[in-house]
Amino acid sequence: MSDVPAPQAAVVLFVAGGAPRSAAALRILMAAIAASGRPESTFRIEVVDVLRDPARALEAGLLATPSLALIPPGGTRRWFVGDFERPELLAGWLADALG
């Protein structure tokens, strides 16, 4: 399977303002993706500040910030809620969500 060029999985990080925290969250996310052993090109990563772009929150039916939405190709969206103060949890979840 892995030798077939995989379509991208969408990873959307929803944050509410607070640049330093958002930057930290993004850093932890990138590290977790790297740890997943999949090439970065497998992912289409996006950061949404809901204070600037609440329409995106509505579109996603967002409940909490920060939240990470992961939509594997052809799969259903899964949510990871909370700041990434324990990156190993995020990494485990990513691996699980990607199947």
């Binding site: 303002g17 990871f80 809620v81």
Partner: peptide
């Protein structure tokens, strides 16, 4: 199936 880890707030909602 939502997973919670760490702190969060309701600004998203």
């Amino acid at each position: 199936d939502m997973v919670f880890a760490g702190d969060f707030d309701l600004r998203g909602m």
